[in-house]
Every structure is written in C-alpha cells, then in structure tokens.
C-alpha cells in the first residue's frame, strides 16, 4: 500500500464483506470463509482475484511454521463448524417458534391484547411496542411475564389488527406461525 499523505485520497473507501462484515482480507478468520468467498466473487471480482489466488494462499501459509499452521487450521475448522451450527440453530428456531396474540378480558367489555414470542424473530420488542402504540393509537407497553420473559400488552381488543399488521410489516414472520387465542380468564389487577 502506497503511503502518501496527500489529502485527496482520504477518506479511504474500505469494502466490507456482506457475509461476515469484516474487510474481505480478514474473512479467512471469520469462520464463514466459503460464503465470504462466494460473496466477494460476485460483488468484487477484482478483489476476489487478488485475495483468493493460489499465490496469495501459498504466501499466507509460508509465513507460519508447520506446527502453527496445523493449529490454526484446526482452530479455523472448529470456528467454521461453530458458525454453521449457530446458523442452523437460529433458522430452526425461527421455523418452530410461534407468535401468540392473546385477547385477555379485563372487565366484561374491555380487553387487552398480549403479544408474545416476537423476540424469537430478532425484533426489539420495546420498539415494536412503541410502533403498536403509534399505529393503533392506544397504550402499549412491554410487561414481564410471570414465567420469565416479556410480552407486549396493548390496550383494547386488537388481535385481528395486530395479526394483519405483523404479517404485513415483518416479512420475516410466516403467517402460519402467528396464532390468535382468546383468554377468558379474568385478570385480577386491571
């Protein structure tokens, strides 16, 4: 890299990998090397040429002692396996987890609606609660559930509206995974 202190070439533009978010030259340490390589080949072919050529790889290897190489390789494999399993797990969780929309009777004709399970889909429930409040013009808050965890409580009977809104705005959530239930049990503290 040529070092010139002329101000015209700064700020320097740095490309970041779309898969692991590191600069591509560090992808090899990220655990998702295969995917990173594919991404780079598609998006920045010139850079891919430079980084993944046979020469470059050999040069990288020659810089280390044999022993260290082996250890590094083992480590890299472990890391890759870990990343892969983490991803699979996240996907599975996404497929199996359900969003529950509960209509809870508070006082005969008055209802509150509780929404559970949104955090499984990577949503920040505090923000979603705020959005609900804005969208439906009601009170909406995050409350703790006795069994642990948190849910969003929205004032009023909004279960159908919330169902529509959720499936419309958050495309991550499959419609089949959202369930509406009615809770007849009277809540003690209103």
């Amino acid at each position: 890299m040529a070092e010139a202190s002329s101000s015209s070439e700064f700020p320097k533009k740095v490309v970041y990998c779309g898969v692991c978010s590191l600069p591509p030259e560090y992808c090899e340490f990220g655990g998702t090397v295969k995917k990173c390589e594919e991404w780079l080949e598609q998006n920045h072919p010139a850079m891919h040429e430079k980084l993944y050529s046979q020469e470059a790889i050999e040069q990288n290897l020659s810089a280390l002692s044999l022993d260290a190489q082996k250890r590094a390789e083992k480590d890299a494999q472990k890391k890759a396996a870990k990343a892969a399993s983490a991803e699979a797990k996240a996907q599975e969780q996404r497929a199996t987890s359900k969003v529950l929309i509960k209509r809870i009777e508070r006082n005969k004709r008055k209802y509150v609606t509780a929404v559970q399970g949104l955090e499984q889909f990577g949503l920040d429930i505090k923000k979603v609660a705020k959005d609900f409040g804005k969208k439906f013009a009601t009170g909406s808050s995050v409350t703790k559930v006795p069994g642990g965890g948190e849910e969003i409580t929205v004032q009023g009977d909004l279960s159908d509206d919330i169902l529509d809104y959720l499936t419309e705005t958050y495309s991550d959530i499959p419609e089949d995974n959202v369930e509406c239930i009615e809770d007849k049990k009277k809540k003690a503290a209103g």
């Binding site: 700064f10 700020p11 320097k12 740095v14 560090y26 340490f29 810089a63 280390l64 480590d75």
Partner: peptide, 26 residues
C-alpha cells in the same frame, strides 16, 4: 475501527505477525 479504516495514517500504528491475527480476532 471504521474510522481508522478511513483515515489509517492519522493514528499511531504497530503491526502484528500473521500468527497472532486469529487470537486477536477472537
């Protein structure tokens, strides 16, 4: 680090060998 990447020459720099990278990144 994103700022450093944009203006690398403005900071005091040192360099590590290749073997250390994976430890630093973990």
């Amino acid at each position: 680090l994103t700022l450093i990447h944009r203006y690398p020459h403005c900071f005091t720099r040192l360099r590590i060998d290749r073997g250390a990278i994976r430890f630093v990144l973990s």
